[in-house]
């Protein structure tokens, strides 16, 4: 297991507000291997972004607080590092791509200068050298280098996201965190950007955490998948394991929420209800009140972690008694 680039264990993150404590992340365990991509999937408010920001140590504090757990990057415990050391890691070893490229770029600085800034912070190079590297990065993401002197408002959304990617990759990070990188883009551009990220990941041999709520994106890019619900990983495994042998009712619900292109008469089966209130999580399984398979035990007891093979596990009471329990695909 020395190939682990990132290892998160029992991460708990709370937001302490005047109205109470928001339990955003409640004991997350994930790992990313070198050169592999982990897809972190879940609906809005599941704690995906909070997990990502924890890796960067960028949780707004206050109100955010990493209560317990550990985050190890190549064996270094990120949670014990001082701010000045973190500044050296951010952008150099770990980079992040933000959700909305429209707001992630500084409107008053040229894109070339913004890429060069990251380079100049981490590498001891002069301004002209950094500017040259910035243009190379632009070329790599498919933007002509002579546009380096233009401002963000002169670019389209897809191109802005390319610029954001160029900034993130400018120092050859080992780990790239992409927080819903394609959500703000339209479908045609989405495919291009995903393709680009995939190629660059292979080229730079990076590990990647891809945060998304789009299972299509996951199928396209990821090696491993972790399904997140109410601050916990409810199912995790390789792409094939999770996609071919869905175990958790929530994962099944996610798949049923995708329109079926082969059967147009097929109706969508959304997951009923809303995610439980993070101020006041239920005592047992957080998915209890929305689950079609709910049993009395689900209400009172936290579901155990049940393994299927080396990589695939699920947190659900259904498999406690009978390992070979089959979900019925949401059919009544």
């Amino acid at each position: 297991m020395s190939d682990k680039l990132l290892k998160i264990e029992d991460l708990v993150v709370h937001y302490i507000t005047d109205d109470g404590v928001v339990e955003a992340v409640n004991g997350v365990n994930i790992g990313v291997d070198r050169g592999k991509t982990l897809g972190l999937v879940g609906e809005t408010g599941a704690g995906k972004t909070t997990t990502a920001l924890s890796i960067m140590r960028l949780i707004p504090h206050p109100p955010g607080k990493i209560v317990s757990g550990s985050i190890e990057l190549e064996g270094t415990d990120l949670l014990s590092l001082k701010e000045s050391r973190l500044e050296k890691i951010r952008g150099d070893v770990v980079s992040m791509i933000f959700q909305d490229p429209m707001t992630a770029l500084n409107p008053v600085i040229t894109v070339g200068d913004q890429i060069a800034e990251a380079i100049m912070i981490h590498q001891k190079v002069g301004q002209s050298k950094a500017a040259q590297k910035a243009r190379e990065m632009l070329e790599i993401v498919g933007i002509p280098g002579n546009r380096a002197g233009e401002y963000p408002h002169q670019f389209s959304g897809g191109m802005k996201q390319r610029v954001v990617i160029a900034i993130a990759l400018s120092c050859n990070p080992k780990l790239l965190i992409a927080d819903e990188p394609t959500t703000a883009l339209d479908v045609t551009i989405q495919a291009q950007v995903l393709e680009l990220m995939k190629n660059l990941k292979d080229k730079f041999q990076m590990g990647m955490v891809l945060i998304t709520h789009d299972l299509g994106v996951v199928a396209e890019v990821c090696d491993d998948v972790a399904i997140m619900y109410a601050g916990r990983i409810v199912e995790q495994g390789t792409l094939e394991e999770v996609f071919n042998t869905v175990k958790h009712p929530y994962t099944e619900g996610l798949f049923n929420s995708i329109p079926n292109i082969d059967d147009r008469r097929d109706k969508l089966k959304p997951i009923r209800g809303l995610m439980s209130d993070p101020y006041n999580l239920p005592k047992g399984c957080s998915f209890y009140d929305r689950c079609d398979y709910a049993m009395p035990v689900c209400e009172t007891q936290k579901p155990p972690k049940i393994h299927f093979g080396e990589t695939h596990f699920v947190e659900c009471h259904l498999y406690q008694e009978q390992q070979d329990f089959k979900l019925n695909g949401g059919k009544e």
């Binding site: 960028l58 952008g91 770029l105 800034e117």
Partner: peptide, 15 residues
């Protein structure tokens, strides 16, 4: 968000 993005590339408070 671009302030957060700047922090994510390792910029310190002064920058």
């Amino acid at each position: 968000e671009f302030i957060e993005a700047a922090r994510a590339i390792g910029a310190n408070d002064f920058i």
